[in-house]
Write a protein that binds this DNA or RNA. Structure first.
Lengths: 230, 230
DNA sequence: GTCTATAGACTGATAGAC
DNA sequence: GTCTATCAGTCTATAGAC
């Protein structure tokens, strides 16, 4: 809602800065892009960045917050759906799937033509800059909702085990995004990083196994996924 | 009192820069430490950094290379020992242990009094700066030796599975170092990050399960673990 | 050969006119 | 809101002293 006069149209400068910055950061990384590069691409004045965002770090933070809020919303929607489908208690593999699925799909897109938003988030994962680290450190409340869902799903399990399972699931997903290039080179292309569904199955399967451990025959029909192709 | 007579090798300046830089980076991170801070702490001239190292990035690179070469040497020693003990074929868990053990022990020290070297390596894991990324990307040959050992250990296994297992083991270890703070906060201290041996056991167990787990009872052909609503 | 002093080009941030 | 002009701070490079 606008108040106090006419204010709407003038965010052109602000949005131009945001989209130019996201694209440049996605293409060349945070270290190589200066504010002068951004204002040149957005065709605005240098001082406009500080006027609208306060500092370079706050500009990066705003970009990152916007994108990660969208991902977190997606995660929670999947979690709610899984719990609803299970009558309040989601299957443990569905919880892991809701946790790492949105991020993996957003960053490991199958095409070489990824959106600027996706490539920006990959950069944010690889090049850890102070403003992004600060935001990530405040996402614990979000993860707590997944820890609670895991508790409901496996009420008998030791809480410490659940935390480690959550941690390892995030680790595998995050590192797969971060070091996808290394894995491709190491495996000489035999690990298909474009098969997002297969990677998701793989990470979920290992995460479930980490929790249900040696008792694979007991309750969880978790199996190693095996195949690759598409 | 310049040279001649009893004179130390005059790389005093060089080593003073190295140790001051390592300590400052360990304490305050890469972003907050300037060359001027370093030369002030080392009590040398600003231009000495450029004379001895060429640039700030090359100084960081030299620090990181020195420490990571030591870790890699430790890793390979453990791997050799494991293969010798197994007559040329090491047990798969011993391979994982050689891969992630040295790094975990070096960075997750039990005490709050960690060496400057250890804290520097933690910083290098958390704050990814360009010179360190460049070096990490050239460590694939080192990892190849572990992939080869895994091949010898589990000759029947699909190579792709071995690469994913190696990748996931590194992911869990690296992320545990990177995000130890988050795990502590999330678990409210119930996950003990000082129990390095326990963490190592945990990561090795999950990594082995990721390779051998699904076939506790049989071979487990391609199976979809679960599906999400979509 | 080592090291110092000094100058240069670039960055993010800001003050003040419009 | 936008812009010009300018700030203090950074890394880098080089000429020259010891």
């Amino acid at each position: 809602m606008s108040h106090s006069g006419h204010d709407m149209p003038t965010d052109h400068t602000r949005t131009a800065i945001l989209s130019a910055a996201e694209r440049l950061y996605a293409d060349r990384g945070f270290a190589d892009v200066t504010l002068r590069d951004i204002v040149a691409a957005a065709d605005v004045n240098l001082a406009a960045v500080n006027y609208h965002f306060g500092s370079k770090d706050e500009l990066i933070a705003e970009l990152f917050v916007t994108r990660s809020l969208a991902t977190n919303r997606e995660r929670l929607n999947e979690l709610k759906a899984a719990e609803a489908a299970g009558g309040g208690r989601a299957a443990i593999d569905a919880i892991f799937r809701a946790l790492v699925g949105p991020t993996l799909r957003g960053c490991l897109g199958p095409d070489n033509e990824r959106s600027a938003a996706a490539r920006f988030m990959i950069r944010a994962s690889i090049e850890s800059v102070p403003p992004i680290r600060r935001i990530k450190n405040r996402e614990i409340d979000h993860l707590r909702k997944f820890a609670a869902a895991m508790r409901r799903s496996l009420p008998g399990r030791d809480q410490v085990e659940l935390y480690w399972g959550l941690h390892f699931a995030l680790a595998m997903a995050h590192q797969t995004i971060r070091d996808s290039e290394r894995l491709i080179k190491l495996s000489e292309g035999s690990c298909d990083l474009n098969d997002v569904a297969g990677i998701l199955d793989r990470i979920v399967a290992v995460s479930v196994m980490a929790l249900t451990g040696g008792e694979a025959e007991k309750k969880a029909p978790a199996k190693l996924v095996a195949r690759d192709a598409r």
